[in-house]
């Protein structure tokens, strides 16, 4: 490498270094709280296992909910109570997709739970059932929402 080439190279690399920080996108964190993705919540509950669709899980929710602030949801599992450990109700596109988790015991006598949840917009509601042998089964149902209920 002779002197002329060396000077050229340094000039080019210097110019690139001076410009590059301005080209980088603005990576500053926003002040607003972040929405939790559905896949992350599902992974947190199941620990990486894939839940199977099952006809044993009966999810009763209205097909069209006029008001998203109050959507009645009912979950029934056609299995003996000893086999059911927990019932989770998830709403896929909510700010926090995990709506409610219920941990049952044999004293309950029947795997059943009913509550009222909020839905931000039209989305699928998922009933995820944790069995005592570590497996997961689920049922999904789309619910249409005319007025959102999550602020």
């Amino acid at each position: 490498m002779n002197r002329r080439n060396f000077l050229k190279m340094t000039a080019i690399s210097g110019a690139v270094l001076a410009v590059s920080p301005k080209l980088l996108p603005n990576t500053e964190a926003k002040a607003e709280p972040k929405k939790i993705p559905y896949e992350k919540v599902l992974n947190e509950i199941t620990g990486g296992k894939t839940p199977q669709d099952s006809a044993d899980v009966k999810l009763i929710a209205p097909a069209i909910a006029e008001n998203g602030a109050v959507v009645p949801v009912k979950v029934e599992v056609a299995r003996p109570i000893e086999e059911v450990k927990a019932i989770h109700i998830l709403a896929k596109k909510n700010f926090n997709p995990r709506s409610v988790s219920v941990y049952l015991s044999p004293q309950n006598g029947k795997p059943y739970f009913s509550t009222r949840i909020r839905l931000a917009k039209t989305m699928d509601v998922v009933a995820l059932v944790e069995l005592s042998n570590g497996e997961f089964i689920k049922a999904e149902k789309p619910v249409k929402v005319t007025i959102g209920g999550c602020g």
Binding site: S99, V100, S101, V102, Y103, F113, S114, T115, R116, R118
Partner: peptide, 20 residues
């Protein structure tokens, strides 16, 4: 006998129903 963990996505004046 039962533990229930709701989050923000549950409606105001929470209603719960289960068997005993």
């Amino acid at each position: 006998i039962t533990t229930i963990k709701p989050t923000q996505s549950v409606s105001a004046n929470p209603y719960i129903s289960f068997y005993l």
